[in-house]
Design a protein around this nucleic acid. Structure first.
Lengths: 190, 190
DNA sequence: CTTAAAAAAGGACAAATGTCCCAAGTCAAA
DNA sequence: TTTGACTTGGGACATTTGTCCTTTTTTAAG
């Protein structure tokens, strides 16, 4: 649910000392939209601290949350390779502190720092790797099973996130979410 | 629905001339399982010709098809970075011809051939990029809307794939697929 | 050609989920 | 303090989708 990549963050903090001009520290308040869907950027971000949600909005205004990102997760990196506009929005849901880096400098590092290059490859492989099983499970299992799984992995996910975010993460309506939460409470009593 | 990456394939064919010992051509019959979920491999594949399906099986035996792969798509590459067992199965659905390469040689190329490196980065960025919108749409829209979209992108998808594969791709049952296809026929008549 | 197995099709019913409401509580800005 | 916007919670009903079965058609093997 909340992805992190602390190894990558550690390496970035090292790099920041070597190339202090490459990285800009930025602070964002809860609710700030750091990256907006369908806009073009020449920079990307890596989270030093805090939690963001990364989501796609469709034409009806429905949001689908792909993932919550924590320390060491980067976003906006796909556009370095594709030259396209951002395909999703990323919004701070706590106070967030990021490293901002330009596409140019990111490319420079990719080409000249083999360790950085390896970190990026690994980070992307992980992004691919966790998406598939999650969507697969979400599609194939009931809301109840999905909530039980969430609860298992993040015992207090319902304190961290708003109902709306949880519903958007699971791709369901708030009504269904409430109903299922009630059923779970009922069955626990017995 | 069927992903391809012809630029990558062209480059591999070039590389094959430079490093003929790196790549092994393999032929697979329709129905062959080329890569099996939860097994460990020291090689990965890139499709020279033909179509495969890449799917996750859950404990109840239900399959969820992530994507159909055509020319130039690689599979099994995630395990180069993660050291884990294969997280999905890949099965030929036509006659398929692949280039097989060992993790070791793949890593060698990543580290010593910057163009190859860039191709891999780009290929992974694309895999991330197309997964998100697809799952988002699939979750948020009705079966009918999903089928219409498929029909639009692949007018004769229903000739290429079995009903079961289409259902597994959409994460629905065959019963629901048939029902919806009938409804679409009905509404066309009017 | 025969037969068994797999794929396709659909009826009847049950369960899951969404839609459309309305009401109560919370919070921040005026 | 009041107002309005947002969040939460849930009732009633409609719709969608799944489950379970049965039948027919197609395919592949002997």
């Amino acid at each position: 649910m909340i992805r992190t990549n602390k190894d990558f963050l550690s390496y970035i903090e090292l790099l920041d000392k070597k190339h202090p001009d490459f990285f800009v520290l930025e602070a964002h308040d809860s609710g700030d939209i750091i990256l907006e869907q369908d806009k073009r950027y020449k920079v990307l971000f890596l989270i030093k601290e805090g939690i963001t949600k990364c989501y796609l909005s469709d034409e009806n205004g429905k949001d689908f949350i792909q993932e919550f990102f924590g320390e060491g997760m980067q976003f906006g990196e796909l556009e370095v390779f594709s030259n396209k506009s951002s395909y999703c929005s990323t919004e701070a849901i706590t106070k967030v502190c990021t490293y901002k880096i330009s596409h140019t400098n990111y490319n420079y590092l990719l080409e000249n720092d083999p360790i950085f290059n390896k970190h990026v490859l690994k980070a992307m492989a992980e992004k691919i790797g966790y998406k598939a099983p999650r969507f697969s499970f979400q599609q194939s299992y009931s809301i109840e099973e999905n909530l039980l799984k969430l609860k298992e992995l993040y015992p207090d996910f319902d304190k961290l996130f708003s109902k709306k975010d949880i519903a958007n993460y699971l791709g369901i309506t708030i009504r269904s979410l409430n109903r299922t939460l009630n059923n779970l409470k009922e069955s626990k009593k017995k």
